[in-house]
Design a protein around this nucleic acid. Structure first.
Lengths: 201, 201
DNA sequence: TCGAATCCAATGCAGTTGTATTGGACCGGA
DNA sequence: TCCGGTCCAATACAACTGCATTGGATTCGA
């Protein structure tokens, strides 16, 4: 998924293409986080990145290509956040703590992750209309439900996992919209984990 | 919220202004459901409504005004769907059945409600960037959590209600993105209701 | 019947959009 | 040294955007 250097080409290659592209994608996400995805244009992104529009056009032949790359960057970023948070837990953590850590790493709880969340939400609406770009996101949630289901106790782990993931997504949406406070979201999450991990009558 | 005739004006009024506006808003939602909110423009909406662009401009002095009105229409529509579904239950239904009916009335389960859901999702991303338009949606979820909390048993009803609502929202998002099938979403919902209504150890 | 107001079609306008094209600076290998 | 390639800035262009303006058709109260 992450090409290391990409020197498969022919002749003279001094600049790191992938780095340039991620730099432009970062600028795209800054614009999208502040003004929404519909404000993303070649010139706006170029201005936000501090480069010329021609350069953006050089690294992305079309706008859709740029959007697709930016979507990949968002996915990679949250992936990195999650693995880092989990690595901080050490080996063999309790399933409940592991889930809580993973979910709070994804939720837009601070200003930093809020921007990523806004972009992710925008892309969610974006892919809801462009089925071609939706497959990557679809795969992510499939993978996630399988992972969560393996951590949940008892029978019926798969619907429970799907429900937990949906709850997380909904909390994220409501946090971004300002419908829930951080405390409310965390309380709802903890209550759900209680429900999932405490034995039933 | 629903003005009956709006004849507070001065002189000659033959056409029903509110009806025209909702007709235009319907066209807007058709465009948004098919091509996304960013494809919504005066001329596109006019074409979808089968009217002249001038007429759209006549009934909405600005595009933001049109968007705001369309947002209200989406809210009204789902509100109507919910109350109709609940009315079909008769008086004093079981809380669990009531909640299930309400939630399945909101979820984008068939092609018809899918369009509304797409538009609602687009507006969610829209309001995440325009805080001015977010207050109406915020109020809706506040009202919903309070309503749900009153139906849930035992202590800690408020986090549970917030969680259930978030789960619903997440299910909707994943249904729209094609991440979950209808059966998966309903299984997750029913499992959650089981969890909420069955006694705990 | 005569303004006056509404309704709405038509057109114009300045700004932005994505993309194609051109041209030149710079570098590699031959 | 020269040449083919990359890198990127500049410009052009047609299409589209939201909005303002104009003007005529229609309708209603006086």
């Amino acid at each position: 998924m992450r090409r290391p250097c990409e020197t498969i080409d022919t002749m003279p290659r001094k600049v790191d293409t992938h780095q340039r592209r991620t730099r432009i994608a970062d600028a795209l996400m800054r614009v999208a986080a502040e003004q929404g995805l519909e404000a993303v244009s070649l010139r706006h992104v170029a201005a936000a990145a501090g480069v010329s529009p021609g350069m953006v056009q050089h690294y992305f032949r079309t706008k859709d290509e740029m959007m697709g790359f930016a979507l990949e960057v968002v996915r990679d970023r949250t992936q990195v956040r999650v693995t880092e948070a989990l690595a901080r837990l050490g080996v063999e953590p309790e399933p409940r703590l592991l889930l809580r850590t993973m979910i709070t790493a994804i939720l837009p709880l601070d200003a930093e992750t809020r921007d990523d969340g806004r972009v992710a939400l925008a892309f969610l609406a974006y892919t809801a209309v462009r089925p071609a770009a939706a497959s990557a996101l679809r795969e992510d949630t499939t993978q996630m439900t399988a992972f969560i289901a393996r951590l949940l106790p008892g029978p019926g782990a798969e619907p429970a996992a799907a429900g937990l993931l949906a709850l997380m997504e909904g909390l994220g949406v409501y946090l971004l919209g300002g419908h829930y406070t951080t405390e409310q979201a965390l309380a709802a999450l903890d209550a759900q984990l209680d429900r999932l991990f405490s034995p039933r009558a």
